[in-house]
């Protein structure tokens, strides 16, 4: 009776431990004796065994789709490309900015006053072009002058 009252917890612990290891002779002795006198624990143990058997029986056998390997490789390739783009994108952005800056500089240089530089005493370099009487020597300008007369 005492064993029933005070040993149930220990028995249940051992009944689970028994799944994974061999009980020591002392533990085994207790286990067997308790099993003989305690119907509740015996039933508890049986239920545990049934539940574990059910669990083992429900193990799934895998069915692998035929294109599994190909799919993994395809996704891998795609992800590598993406990583490469992410890796190089700052370089591309930097290069694009440098190109823009270069173009802008060239534009500024083209418009800069260095091209209409006037030497001292050279009165109105810009006006030279529009001073039709003195400067219009090219055929287009001559034509223009003729038409506007």
């Amino acid at each position: 009776m005492n064993m029933r009252l005070f040993g149930c917890g220990k028995f249940r612990y051992l009944s689970i431990e028994k799944f994974d290891r061999q009980l020591t002779p002392k533990e085994d002795g207790f286990y067997r004796k308790h099993r003989e006198v305690c119907f509740t624990c015996l039933r508890h143990e049986q239920q545990g065994l049934n539940a574990m058997n059910l669990l083992n029986a429900a193990s799934m056998e895998p069915e692998i789709s035929e294109d599994f390997d190909a799919k993994v490789l395809a996704v891998y390739r795609k992800s590598r490309k993406r990583v490469a783009i992410t890796y190089w994108s700052p370089v591309f952005a930097g290069a694009a900015l440098a190109c823009l800056a270069l173009l802008a500089t060239l534009q500024l240089l083209a418009r800069s006053p260095i091209h209409t530089y006037q030497r001292p005493g050279d009165a109105g370099a810009d006006n030279r072009f529009y001073n039709q009487d003195q400067q219009a020597t090219t055929p287009n300008l001559i034509l223009h002058r003729e038409l506007t007369r």
Binding site: R12, I16, E17, F19, Q47, G48, N50, A51, M52, L55
Partner: peptide, 12 residues
């Protein structure tokens, strides 16, 4: 240990 015991209870 806990999982086995809980699983047993759930099954019961």
């Amino acid at each position: 240990h806990t999982a086995r015991e809980r699983f047993r209870k759930l099954w019961i």
